[in-house]
Computed example of a mutant assay.
Amino acid sequence: MTNPHRSAARIQVATTLRRLREDAGIPRERSVAALNCTPTKIGNIETAVSGIKQAELEKLLDLYGADDETREDLLSLNSEAHRRRPRSKIGGMIAPWLRRILDVEASATEALYSSFELVPAALQTEHYARAIMVGGGVTGEALEKNLELRAGRRALLTDREPPLRMWAVLAEPALRANIGGPGVMLDQVDHLLEMTELAHVDVQVMPQGAGAHMLTGTTLTLFRLPDKLPSLVSVDTPFGAHFVDRPDQVEKTSRWFDHTRAKALGVEESRELLMQIKKDTR
């Protein structure tokens, strides 16, 4: 019997395995042959309906040509999915935990985002993203690799079919934070206004002085996933993202997000405030 609770760890293993297989151009039939199993089992693994044993995971990672860092990260994460304590891994130009977040995001149908400090990655301009990364000490080749990934996240809103549905609630101070200087912030606000013209992108602004709300002081994203996968919440911390997967906590976060966007300015009022911030930034 499969575990009815598909944990964040299991879902991340599933979405990353599917991405690795597709990147390698390998049909599911070869995965079936590698594990000597049924096509249903591969489908269940890739949708996190069922977990995968370490030995089976190693076979698929061999088949997909996973690099050493990805291999170690997924094997460690799969231990967590089986309720064994994983080893911590930090390093590399692209942190494995970030790569897994991107796999979850790329699989998502909808992302609900709330922050007092930052514009969500998928809505960031290159110069804004660069200023954030440089401010965080990322330089050289690692900076360029991370910016390349950031461009891929923007493409989820413009190049994917169907595109990612994005609903972001941003605090007004985040839009006046002068990240990268006035010119960078002006371009960023311009970009937000342009993106809100898309039917699948909504941005609401929590005006300065609005007071506390359910998500005050927190930067998080609630991902709605396809294929009957449960929703996941990613909470940003200085050490990477922390995933919340318990259904009751995810449901509570969804209610908190509804409360927060109900308190923020409406979509059209937010556009008006964005235009005013644009004038103020000149």
Rank of each mutant, 00 (worst) to 15 (best):
H5R: 13
I11A: 05
I11L: 12
T15V: 15
L17A: 10
R18I: 00
R19L: 02
R19F: 01
L20N: 11
L20T: 07
R21H: 13
E22A: 12
D23P: 09
G25M: 08
I26E: 02
A34Q: 14
A34H: 07
L35N: 11
C37P: 07
C37V: 07
P39H: 04
T40R: 13
N44C: 13
V49P: 10
G51T: 04
I52Y: 05
I52N: 08
Q54E: 12
L60S: 14
D62A: 06
L63Y: 12
G65M: 09
A66L: 05
A66N: 10
D68H: 04
T70Y: 06
R71H: 03
D73M: 07
S76D: 15
A81L: 02
R83P: 12
R85Q: 04
P86R: 00
G92I: 01
I94R: 13
I101Y: 12
I101L: 15
L102N: 06
L112C: 10
F116P: 07
A122T: 15
R130T: 10
I132W: 05
M133K: 14
G135A: 13
G136A: 15
G136L: 11
G136Y: 09
V138Q: 10
T139Q: 13
G140A: 06
E141K: 05
L143C: 13
L143E: 12
G152S: 03
R153D: 03
A155Q: 14
L157S: 08
D159R: 12
P162M: 00
P163C: 03
M166P: 12
A168K: 09
L170M: 11
L170V: 15
L175D: 03
R176W: 01
G183H: 06
G183N: 09
V184P: 15
D190R: 14
L198K: 15
Q204T: 03
M206R: 10
P207T: 00
A212L: 12
M214Q: 12
T216W: 01
T218Y: 06
T221N: 13
L222V: 04
R224L: 00
R224V: 08
R224D: 06
L225K: 14
D227L: 08
S231M: 01
V233Q: 07
V235G: 13
D236R: 07
F239L: 08
F239T: 10
H242C: 09
F243H: 14
Q249L: 14
S254H: 04
W256E: 05
H259M: 14
H259G: 15
E268L: 01
E272R: 02
L273W: 01
Q276T: 00
K278D: 00
